Amino acid sequence: MTTIGINLLVCMDELNGGTPQSALLPAIAGHGVTLAEVRREYIADDAEYDRIAEAAREHGLDLFYSVPEPLVVGGAVHPGFGTFLDEAVRMGVRNVKFNQGDVRDASAAVIAAIDDAAAERGLTLSVENDQTPENGTLACTAASLARIREVGGSIGYTFDLGNWFWRGEDAGEAFERLLPYITVFHLKNVNGAADRARLATTMLEDGVIDWRSMLPRLGGDVPVFLEFPIPADRVAGQLAAVRAAVG
């Protein structure tokens, strides 16, 4: 059965207003979800890691961790990799997501070392297609995932449905090609504007992507996260739409 979660980007208005993620987790749990994905770029001080851990325990939330840094840089693991994993352990996180970076060019030894570091801490990892020309194209992402599989790596894949539009690529084609690799799904919809300056996320029912046909095709063990800014009074409705789509 598909598990639905909320990425803290949903609460962008509150985050931009200075509300810490730890203070938002109770409201997220109040929507009846058991998964939340916290974002490193909004952690403002060291004590927040412990506050997030405490809030998650108190409200029965399993945590994922979004780190907006490339996993591999110039063939080597990111220099902050160990620190990022230790932060995750401190918060009680299950999965850590990175930008894919240069994974497609990484040696088998580098990918094995990444897997070993995660396993030692009881973590799973995933890489994402972002909105950059370096890390967001279908060709780059397919090459990264093929390389991981080629060398027997355990790194998973977070498929971000909306990001393809910022690269001028077809989200449906990307889904078809990359479906076998998906371990986490970031759900959003977009207005489809041809002018990227006008491209924006929308409420799920208002965009151009046929996301409803995609969700039932995901494995039951692939969590689906809402991952776009949503006004607080519309979060429940967006969750209801996803629940209806996954059955």
Rank of each mutant, 00 (worst) to 15 (best):
V77I: 14
T132C: 09
Q131S: 14
D86N: 13
V77W: 11
H78K: 03
V77E: 14
T132V: 06
V77M: 10
D115N: 07
D86R: 02
S107E: 10
E54C: 01
K97P: 05
A112D: 13
R51A: 15
H78I: 08
A108D: 14
K97V: 13
R90P: 02
R51N: 15
D116F: 00
A88T: 07
N129W: 01
R51M: 14
A106Q: 02
A112M: 01
G75A: 07
G92W: 09
V89Y: 04
G60D: 09
A106D: 09
I52R: 06
A76L: 05
G60C: 09
I52F: 04
A108L: 13
R57K: 15
G101A: 13
L123S: 08
V72Y: 06
E87V: 05
F81K: 01
F98C: 05
Y65S: 03
A53R: 15
V96Q: 07
S66A: 14
A119W: 06
L61W: 10
D50Y: 03
D50R: 12
I114A: 04
A112W: 01
R90V: 02
N95P: 02
A106T: 06
E87A: 04
T132L: 05
E69W: 04
G75P: 02
F84W: 11
G92C: 00
V96Y: 10
P79Y: 05
R57Q: 12
V103A: 06
A117F: 04
R57H: 12
F84G: 02
V89I: 06
V89D: 05
E87T: 09
